[in-house]
Amino acid sequence: MNTVAKLSRDPDFIRLRRLQRRYAFAIAGSVVAFYVSLGVTMAYWPEVLDIRLVPGRWITVGLVWNVLGLLGWFAATATYAALSTRRLTPLRAQVRERHGWNNPDGA
């Protein structure tokens, strides 16, 4: 059995792939949902964006939504990087060592 076939049966490799997919799709999905909801609101209920969160001030729902979005993009990127480095890197190292996959390119 070659290394690729062995890897596909390794429970740690399967777990690694499952966790990587889960983190990636959960974070990317949240980002897409947040942004699409802003787009839907702009398209169908633009008046919602005009609602002022502080009476008499121009701190509107639209302004806050966009600013939170921008900060959220950074938070999402940093969260994935942290999860990948802290939780997946040790798992990758274990799998690599077990299968003689010595190049740490994919750390």
Partner: peptide, 21 residues
């Protein structure tokens, strides 16, 4: 006005996706 903000938000939304995927 507002459109400048949505342009910036939309312009950077790809980064988390680029990172995750």
């Amino acid at each position: 006005g507002y459109d400048g903000l949505i342009y910036m938000t939309g312009g950077a939304v790809g980064y988390p996706l680029l990172m995750c995927l």
